[in-house]
Design a binder for these strands. Structure first.
Length: 276
DNA sequence: ATGGTTGTTTAACAA
């Protein structure tokens, strides 16, 4: 039996045009569970068979035409799928899954988010998308607070569309008024992380002055040369999972795939053989 | 310099 559990989070920006890349990632990184965002695919058009052929027998997908959409594909059997609509929009930005965890009625819950990008203007009065983003964060905080009971284990992943730390962006000074790095967003997401005692894996294991990115805009001639990245994708875990932590990875080479997503996959591995 | 590119669905929208 495999001893480790590897979880990936990836904003795939259309699951249908990037199936080959998903295959490559599954082969090279060998993840047990992949959480996807921006599948941009209605449920009845979801490429279920090709994904199950990759070895991911258990699939939870919540999608819509054109926009958004989240999926959890897994080698590990779900105990339960968690569904919730945020901001009464029915817009497919969250899906969760519960797994059996050892004995004594314990479980591991995985929460996969696609937080609204929030538009261009960081002003809730003139920009309803920014208001939606902030409202979503408030509701996300309440949901996670409700979900987290004593003795349970949680992994929260996704495209949070916020780079909280000064070194989660290429220039704190130049981006401080740019949506994804404004004070209000950074403080709201930090509150979620800190009040629930989550460990923000990619930042926790980085040096304070280390730049950490998971996204590079399409709008650069040479993403690698300009390296104007942001850390929009996150993996958080409850404190009780830290002792199982093995390693994490930002799969930066995926940004050089042919026709890449603007986000790259991030992964974290844990000694959790008892659930896999 | 206020641009630039990509994906979905069909000229506009969201990112």
């Amino acid at each position: 039996m495999k001893k480790n559990l590897k979880v990936i989070s990836w904003n795939i920006n259309s699951i249908r045009i990037r199936l080959e890349q998903l295959k490559k990632i599954s082969e090279e990184l060998d993840p047990d569970i992949i959480c996807l965002q921006e599948t941009k695919c209605e449920n009845d058009k979801f490429p279920l068979a090709p994904i199950q052929d990759l070895g991911y027998k258990y699939v939870a997908h919540k999608g819509q035409a054109s926009y958004n959409g989240v999926a959890i594909i897994s080698r590990v059997k779900f105990k339960k799928i968690i569904e919730k609509d945020f901001c009464d929009k029915n817009d497919c930005r969250y899906i969760g899954a519960e797994f059996d965890f050892g004995t004594k009625n314990k479980s591991l819950k995985l929460h996969n988010f696609y937080v609204p990008a929030g538009g261009d203007e960081p002003d809730t009065v003139i920009n309803p998308k920014f208001k939606h983003k902030l409202d979503f964060l408030d509701e996300m905080h309440r949901h996670l607070k409700d979900q987290i009971a004593n003795g349970q284990y949680h992994i929260i992943v996704g495209d949070m569309n916020i780079a909280p730390h000064e070194n989660d962006v290429w220039s704190h000074k130049q981006l401080v008024n740019v949506v994804s790095h404004t004070d209000i967003e950074r403080s709201k997401i930090s509150e979620i992380i800190n009040q629930q005692n989550f460990c923000d894996i990619l930042r926790y294991f980085a040096n304070e002055d280390e730049k950490v990115y998971s996204w590079w805009s399409y709008r650069n001639r040479d993403w690698k040369k300009s390296n104007r990245g942001r850390r929009l994708d996150h993996i958080w875990v409850t404190e009780n999972l830290l002792k199982y932590y093995i390693e994490h990875q930002i799969f930066q080479i995926a940004r050089d795939f042919e026709r890449p997503s603007d986000h790259v996959p991030i992964s974290a591995s844990f000694h959790l053989g008892h659930i896999a």
